[in-house]
Design a binder for these strands. Sequence first.
RNA 1: GGCGCUAUCGUCUAACGGUUAGGACAGAGCCCUCUCAAGGCUUAAAUACGGGUUCGAUUCCCGUUAGCGCUACCA
Length: 480
Amino acid sequence: MLRVRFAPSPTGFLHVGSARTFIFNWLFARHHRGTMILRVDDTDVGRNTEASLNSIFDGLRWLGLGWDEEYRQSERLALHREMAQAIFAKDLAYRDFTPAGAADTERSGEHGTWLFPPGMRELSRAESDRRAASGEPFALRFRVPRESGRVIHFEDGVFGEQSKSTADIEDFALLRSDGMPTYHLASCADDADLRISDIIRGQDHITNTFKHIQIFEAAGVEPPRFAHLPLLVAPDGAKLSKRKHGPVVSVTTYRDAGFLPHAFLNFLCLLGWSPKNDRERMPLVELTLAFTLEGINRSNAVVNFSEADPFDPKAVWLNAETIRGMGPGALAEALTPFVTRAGFEVSPAKMALITPLIQERIRLLSEVTTVGDFFFAKQLAPYDAAELIPQKGDAAMAARALEKGAAVLATAEFRHDPLEQALRAASVELGIKAGQMFQPVRVAVCGRKNAPPLFGTLEALGRETCLERIGQALEKLKTI
RNA sequence: GGCGCUAUCGUCUAACGGUUAGGACAGAGCCCUCUCAAGGCUUAAAUACGGGUUCGAUUCCCGUUAGCGCUACCA
């Protein structure tokens, strides 16, 4: 039975890179009818926060994929210590009494770092036991074979054959001096206990894998298969980070900006993975069917955002496409929270009228209040009266069009087709082009030149509002 | 510094060693049209560099350069 896990540590919000790792694991699990496990890697008690945990769960729930089993590392400490003890018992680990951080200064010299703490590796067992018994704190370090010249090998599901000499691997810690397991130990102990068959994680772990394989071997466990994912980077090439790149690296930022979960997920899938058949917009089932490790490439992918444009244009396009593909009812429902959040009230009936008018004009759900603000606002935002003047016309023409428009709208049946007929007829009567008739009316009711189709807009706005706004526009015209 | 990884249009990517190096987004232009969108058509845009191997390299090998990652008692 294939088992994979996603193992976030609750030390920050859910990162887009983490979200992608989750999605790829999920797709891999579903593709192979395996089990998806969520494991919270919370052994760094100093850095864990409740807010972070919430952010991660919020983000994952928003994605809507779900998982089959859930664990928390902090509840499994006994298991981790047991494994550490077993490794220590085989003398494959040793106590390091160097005070935490004390070696940092000497190790950060010109030419890098040492592979193991001076003196500690060679400490006799008797001496080690004596100091431990006296209560002196110590970290437990893995004893990487030094003289053997051994080379660790593994076959990476994405990067292929990997190898590294043990001579280049430092004696990493298993247990901290407070007794808490480190990531390496806890992760391996849990992966072994949970019978994880495939570890799919970021490429930043590729060098850690050589350590992990040694832990599995020391514990007498068959290591799982590994596959590493290329990293998501910013346009400057650096790994995405909150400090450097701001909220664009958080999944909740995308949610709050009005991305649909599937569009976001679809976008992430296209970063570093390809179905190799030119397909881009894909429903979940297709993604699940198509997803293989072979489709993952090896170079980092740029998330193409900027200060001017906080979201990758491709993500935005995918979202716009997804919005266009939605049924009007579902879209109206998705849009409503964004309307109310902006401080407007709207009835479901009016929302049903507005939605088709803006459906292909918004790329993000949040744009409902920028593209369609005039549908919701009681008062139109101030606009330049000159906008009312049609092409090849003047203020007088605008005034005639508006007066005629008001007259027509006062009696017309307020539905799309009758409105169009009435307004077209009005333009003929005035001896002006249809566009010269529509333009002043559009600006009068919308407050701007670029707006959704006029007749549907008038219908959604209703007679009273339209007439009121045309009246205001006529007043405005007098100021020219 | 050491170790590891990577390198095709601006970005995401495709191409059994043989293609006019394909697609998508973004850009430009045209068409459609009540404006804006959407849609349709067209267009510009790439194999980092240098050596091999080969009849033939985007593709295989080596080197250079550049970038990234790891080098914590973080994960």
